[in-house]
Design a protein around this nucleic acid. Structure first.
Lengths: 266, 266
DNA sequence: GATATACTGTTTATCAAGTAAACATATTGG
DNA sequence: CCAATATGTTTACTTGATAAACAGTATATC
């Protein structure tokens, strides 16, 4: 099928409106009064509010109010709140990427990708709260996917294998990003009030997680490793994120060897 | 600190109300009229609604109405909607676990865990839509964590290493579960209406994802692997989920070897 | 057994949020 | 110049969570 000669306008119609906006597929209006806002401005303010007060604080009225307009005015720019969320998500992905590395440094390049992704979750704690609608389809989000693929450009892998590795890395990055975010929050809240989750939970869980029902989990709850008290002393092998990540990289590495040498392992 | 002699009641006070309910930490009322509902019944109905019409369809009024009561009556049982969501999540984790395997079959046991987790996402497509509040603290959810730990019971790993491996497996399972869910949806929607995402997007993305801006992603979009058209023909190495999973298992395996043999690889 | 108490489910009432529709006003292509 | 098309605002509707007051009911206690 020859879809390659589809115009950007046509493409815009196939995408959800928010995605079309993110791609800049919107004919600038020819008549009518000058616009007093811009999509960038709106999304920027929304991100600002979410950074400050969380995603739940982002309402159409709040965003509009902080820009000095009424809620309904936003709908002249963005057709729905879901679209605003998509645009926020894409904005959070608008980060500078480090330069490419030589092919043999693929492990380090993958590490950079995972760190960079985790950093998005830390920089914008609300990022992980946006419901996932499906595969990424917005421009900056796709640049991040492209980044994930970059270290594999010279690997003898087919497209599905590459996508599988992207999934491996990105799902780990997401989960770790969320954990990291929660830990950031705990630190912040812990300094202010002693009211935070983890510590309280660990006492409760020790009373509830019985060895009979939870034979494998029990010792880990008792030791405090489950609720992650004393969060630092585990840095023997590198930090927590790196440990899991290196296992993934080892798994990838091994596959490459097997595929090249036909079964033998390094 | 000697937290072990905390009573279940005391523990309940430290947990969010929803979690306390999930653990059954609620003194049955001594006076007043007989209760006409039960928590199980409410949560069951909420799950039923979510299974049928999605998480957004679960409102206090809808749940109450389908049980023949008013919205406010639910608050006599569950203090807030967030608590209801936690209970739903826990209920979805109430699944039968396969019997333990001998230690040397740890790979298969981990596979079973990942498959089982993915199946939760498929059985309850709303499961992944529930916002994550932190680490699991409800009983069935923790049984699943215990399951994940089971294959590691005899491994020479410290608690943090075990938790890292759990994170590795569970984050992969979550991401793959969500993808699988979306694919299930696409199949369902595709048969009814041709209106579904993936296929439409792929045409649009081919027009937008230019090789200059997306050098690594472009070929994959063009081939259709990104939007996952022709979802089957990639079964050369086993199915899609297994491929990534085997890399994780290889990574774990290798670590075990290195740790035992002090650096050498199998 | 009477009654105060602690419950039950209901009714009524807020409040917030998303968004449709109608409106007055501002630009600009023809 | 003016019809057409925008813009931002006002008004209004809907849905959802949940607080508060209420009327009826079972039990503990006297």
């Amino acid at each position: 099928m020859n879809n390659n000669d589809m115009t950007r306008e046509e493409a815009g119609k196939l995408l959800p409106p928010g995605a079309a906006l993110a791609w800049g597929l919107a004919k600038p209006p020819q008549r009518g009064p000058k616009r007093e806002m811009s999509i960038d401005q709106i999304v920027g303010k929304a991100v600002e509010i979410a950074d400050r007060d969380g995603l739940a604080a982002v309402s159409m009225s709040r965003v509009a109010a902080e820009l000095g307009f009424t809620a309904m005015s936003l709908y002249r720019y963005i057709p729905s709140k879901d679209d605003l969320l998509l645009l926020m998500q894409d904005k959070a992905c608008d980060i500078p990427l480090p330069p490419a590395r030589p092919a043999h440094e693929w492990r380090e390049e993958m590490r950079e990708y995972v760190r960079g992704t985790v950093d998005i979750f830390r920089a914008h704690p609300w990022y992980g709260d946006i419901p996932i609608f499906g595969i990424p389809i917005s421009p900056n989000n796709l640049r991040v996917v492209d980044w994930a693929l970059r270290p594999m450009r010279d690997m003898p892998l087919n497209d599905y294998e590459k996508m599988s590795f992207v999934l491996l890395l990105s799902s780990y990055a997401r989960s770790y990003g969320m954990i990291q975010r929660d830990m950031d929050r705990a630190v912040q809240a812990g300094s202010n009030a002693e009211e935070f989750g983890g510590v309280h939970y660990s006492a409760a869980l020790r009373a509830l997680v019985k060895p009979e029902q939870y034979p494998s989990l029990h010792p880990i709850v008792v030791s405090g490793a489950y609720t992650d008290e004393n969060g630092e002393e585990k840095d023997a092998v590198g930090n927590d994120m790196d440990f899991g990540l290196e296992r993934i990289l080892d798994g990838i590495d091994q596959y490459l060897h097997v595929k090249r040498d036909g079964g033998a392992v390094k």
